[in-house]
Design a protein around this nucleic acid. Structure first.
Lengths: 252, 252
DNA sequence: ATTAATGTAGAACAGTGTACGGAGTTTTGG
DNA sequence: CCAAAACTCCGTACACTGTTCTACATTAAT
């Protein structure tokens, strides 16, 4: 499962140039695309943890070993799924509005998308960067064209926003999953966990700060606030750069 | 592997109150602590993906099935590992300095810790919150006591910083792992991936923005910048609150 | 001393990713 | 036109995995 010695080249090849048609031998019954799509269907309907090569193969009416004609690895298949999904997200710099509006739009949309397709969050695509991911990052940096930030500063913002989204979505997904759970007596997960928390709160008198949290607290509000403040910080830097630019114009 | 119906209560019990001594039957040869420690040793030396119940049991000179006396699940074991590790981090509000210095210190230390123990990042502990994690969050909120931010605002900052760290560390870990890799001809992963990138860059003339990145670019600098800007945004809000507070004092 | 309760662990079950080897198919070279 | 090479497909097999079951040993309560 760990990055194998041999499949790295094959995986990158697949991501960037695809699978060439063979010169001899029987025609392909499948395409890499169809394999990836089938895998995504399985992941979508049964979750990543239920995604197995045998199941994907079954969805394509094909033997399990056949998949290895199209894909060197399960890891490679996952990387392809991630890049495919990334390709479906709209490019940030083509959105309307100011840079701030663009960032907010993409952050919110990413958040919704991750939540709708939790498998994307749970997959680690390894060290591989596919063409779609690359194009997306390129586009995201472009959002800050004309703000005075250089490319590296822009990338810092992009990765920060991404980190915010990822971190928040990881928590939300677990909560989503727990929401559907009920114990034999019909109590929800939240109820039970809350029981432990309150018991130990009172018992030990600790956790005063958490108790100050307005109840019930809305996770989305927490996310929005964090995003807003990060962007406030960026805005300050942008303003500085603008002032700097005007000053230089004046002295020239 | 997914959150089982029955083990949820058992897992929370284990996290919050531990395993009670049985009234009858033979004495325990092990403790939950020792099981968790053994699991951490395995994770540390061989990675999470190599962590199996049988391997943990072998480290304890015990049959694999025995572990299920101490732990309901592998998922529960992982949750215990996470909470144990969380308990080893120093409490943020006890650090010296201003709130900003406290945040920076904890962020950097967390980053280093995650990097030193990658298994922590790769584990999803499920929806469970253990006592150590709870205490840590409580302490992190306390960092903002006296800044004028309320608990929910403080939590937003905490989660934002955490997201930043997590997002950044996920990328860095993959890079760390890829660094050790070499292909049969002795080329590094970076070299090979770079090959694909440059080929396709030139070929299609895309990815102009990424090309503007100073080369080589330092990931730590990107992280530090993102953190600084986020905290700038927070600082602005703190200043606002302070001004507001003074104004109210004046009118009273 | 008997009974109930419990820890231990070997064996087994239903999975998993993937390597191997053979059968069948298509193209190429002579 | 035929043989060899190249290739896809896939049943089988191997070494794993988490977890349950069952038999047995051990301890405490009655």
């Amino acid at each position: 499962m760990s990055t194998a010695r041999k499949s790295v080249e094959a995986t990158l090849d697949l991501l960037w140039t695809g699978l060439g048609r063979p010169k001899r031998g029987p025609r392909h019954r499948l395409t890499v695309q169809r394999v990836v799509e089938a895998a995504m269907v399985v992941a979508e309907s049964e979750g990543v943890e239920a995604l197995s090569m045998r199941k994907v193969a079954a969805h394509l009416d094909v033997g399990a070993a056949t998949l290895y004609t199209y894909v060197p690895d399960k890891a490679a298949l996952l990387a392809l799924m991630v890049d495919e999904m990334t390709g479906q997200a709209p490019l940030p710099h083509t959105r309307p509005g100011t840079w701030r509006e663009k960032v907010q739009a993409w952050a919110r949309e990413d958040l919704a998308s991750f939540r709708a397709h939790p498998w994307l969050v749970e997959i680690t695509s390894g060290p591989f960067i596919g063409p779609h991911a690359f194009a997306w990052t390129d586009s995201a940096i472009r959002v800050f064209d004309g703000t005075g930030l250089d490319a590296e500063e822009a990338l810092a913002v992009v990765e920060a926003v991404d980190g915010l989204v990822q971190g928040h979505v990881a928590k939300v997904i677990e909560a989503d999953r727990a929401r559907g759970w009920v114990d034999p007596e019909g109590r929800s997960f939240a109820t039970i966990q809350e029981g432990y928390l309150t018991t130990h709160r009172i018992e030990a008198g600790r956790f005063e700060a958490i108790e100050r949290l307005r109840d019930p607290y809305e996770p989305v509000r927490v996310f929005e606030r964090a995003l807003a403040w990060l962007l406030d910080g960026v805005e300050r830097r942008v303003a500085e750069r603008a002032a700097q630019g005007r000053a230089e114009d004046g002295t020239l």
